[in-house]
Simulated scan of single mutants.
Amino acid sequence: MVKPEIRGNVNFEIKIQFMQELKEDTFSGNKNEDIHDHIAAKRWVDRLSPDTINSWDLLKKAFLERYCPPSKTVKQLEDIHNFKQEGDESLYQA
């Protein structure tokens, strides 16, 4: 999600129609889609009260709190820092 660039003193809000569109089922079964991730995200969106998310900043904050908690970020950084390619592995395999 990219926060749109808004110049000047503009009051920007997410319209209720956008939140309703997020709740629609858009899973297509593509091999690059994970049904478990899709269901989890859909349940998360369904639980959001339309009156609580009315700006990009609030949607971003709610999403990051749910899917990118600090503990998960720390674990991922540890995995990156501890990456080691074994002698018999290609970079792709590692």
Rank of each mutant, 00 (worst) to 15 (best):
E78V: 07
I35V: 10
R47V: 00
C68W: 13
Y67F: 15
E33L: 12
S90I: 14
V2M: 15
F83I: 00
V45R: 05
E13A: 08
D46F: 07
I6S: 05
L22S: 02
F63Q: 00
N32F: 04
R47G: 07
S90E: 14
N54K: 07
I35D: 04
T73L: 14
N9A: 08
V74S: 15
P4A: 12
V74R: 15
K42P: 00
D88K: 13
A40L: 13
H38Q: 05
K75H: 08
D34T: 04
R43D: 10
G8S: 04
I53F: 00
V2G: 13
R43C: 11
S90Q: 14
E78C: 09
K60W: 11
D51E: 10
A62V: 03
M19G: 01
P69D: 07
Q17W: 02
A40M: 15
Q85D: 08
E86M: 06
I14W: 00
S55E: 00
E21A: 06
I80R: 07
A94M: 10
A40C: 06
M1N: 11
P4C: 10
K31Q: 09
H38V: 03
E86K: 07
M19K: 01
L64C: 09
N32R: 09
K15L: 09
K84A: 11
V2W: 09
N11F: 11
R7V: 11
D79A: 14
K15T: 03
V74D: 15
T52I: 12
